[in-house]
Amino acid sequence: MLALVRPALASMGLFTVLLGLAYPLAITGVAQGAFPHQANGSVIRVGGKVVGSELIGQSFAQPQYLHSRPSAAGSNGYDASASSGSNLGPLNADLAKRIGEGAAAIRQEDDVTVVPADAVTTSGSGLDPHISPENAKMQVARIAAARRVSAAQVKAVVDRHVEDRTLGILGQPRVNVLETNLALDAAFPKGRPPAR
């Protein structure tokens, strides 16, 4: 019995120091030294202020911006300290109701017949930073009107932000909402919302 106790206790102690402290702290050191941008959350700064992260979606309701997907993270969506999906089953009545209302709202705002699925579904994380290229294109006319520029000008900005599959096969084509909205603000400064 005692022959078991010492190896069990001592090895757990040494493993804890090696794997629980040395390993994560060493990786942290390397990460902070070599990849400080990624290691600290890929944040985007505008004029020194943090406006979000390249990787984390945020809510957009104003007409001059691309709108993100619906979100189940936190009570108001896009709570980046409480990630969550809806976890509703495919036949859940609440899901059908939410998607129906979402599609109706989009048809009011945007001139579209077949709404892209990502525009009315919540993502797995509730923090999806992307929308599909179809979803982005559907919103071009509204953004152009709100910014009082031509649809072609807005479309050019959106097109520049379409990312294709990695190596041609991995993942899906997508548009980063926050980065595109920042580019829209940069391209059409008058369209910026009034400062609060």
Binding site: S86, L88, A96, V115, S132
Partner: peptide
């Protein structure tokens, strides 16, 4: 739920990342 709302139903996107 996508079909009922007249939404593109080619992928079941609920709970999936773009």
């Amino acid at each position: 739920a996508l079909v009922a709302a007249g939404v593109d139903a080619s992928v079941n996107m609920e709970g999936k990342e773009v």
